[in-house]
């Protein structure tokens, strides 16, 4: 058994030696070696494949950078908020305010809520204000907020930011009287679209 193993080892050694000797007798011809290196030189000079790949890489990187920049670019999101409260004597008070948040564009895409929609709707509706009916009210100037007392005694409070966004006709707010009678235009979701000084003859009926 061990003799067989020994013989086998000897055979393997012979085989390996013969193989190495034989291989040494047949090296790769020099001309082939030179041709390979020449091909390498010529392909290095200008390789369309490399150029195309590099161009793709550069363009891809630029595209991703621009896309990333645009997606992360902060955008201002305005929301129109209405909060309803009641006083002790059951008077309804609506507080209308405008808030502005700054969000990355990609986040803003997925964070559309009712208040944002209400704001967008307000902007659109301001272009076709004559489609909406006006209600009468009286505008008071408070310390921090403006207040409109509607003819039905409902109170609507408006913050300064929202007031700047409302469509105000012809006159400037500073010229308005302390208790100015106004026409209030409301949108489909109850948002105020515009206010306008009421004509002399338009007054709340005496109750």
């Amino acid at each position: 058994m061990s003799e067989h193993k020994h013989e086998q080892t000897r055979f393997e050694q012979q085989l390996q030696r013969a193989y190495q000797q034989s291989k040494a007798n047949y090296p790769m011809p020099k001309k082939i070696r030179q041709q390979i290196l020449q091909q390498a030189d010529s392909s290095k000079r200008f390789s369309y494949q490399n150029w195309f790949r590099n161009a793709q890489l550069v363009l891809g990187s630029i595209f991703l950078t621009v896309l990333g920049y645009l997606m992360l670019q902060p955008v201002s999101i305005s929301s129109y908020q209405i909060v309803v409260t009641y006083t002790d004597n059951a008077t309804k008070i609506e507080s209308h305010s405008l808030t502005v948040r700054s969000l990355p564009a990609v986040v803003a895409q997925f964070s559309v809520d009712e208040n944002q929609q209400r704001y967008q709707q307000m902007l659109l509706a301001q272009h076709r204000i004559n489609q909406f009916h006006a209600e009468l009210g009286v505008l008071h100037r408070g310390q921090q907020h403006w207040q409109i007392t509607m003819c039905n005694h409902q109170v609507v409070s408006i913050d300064e930011a929202l007031l700047q966004q409302l469509k105000i006709y012809d006159t400037q707010l500073a010229q308005w009287q302390l208790e100015q009678s106004i026409e209030v235009y409301r949108g489909p979701q109850g948002q105020i679209l515009a206010i306008k000084p009421a004509a002399q003859e338009q007054q709340c009926p005496l109750s």
């Binding site: 034989s22 291989k23 047949y26 090296p27 790769m28 011809p29 082939i32 070696r33 390979i36 290196l37």
Partner: peptide
């Protein structure tokens, strides 16, 4: 690289 593997491949 050619020096390392060229002869083996050719053989």
């Amino acid at each position: 690289l050619v020096a390392q593997c060229g002869d083996d491949l050719y053989y």
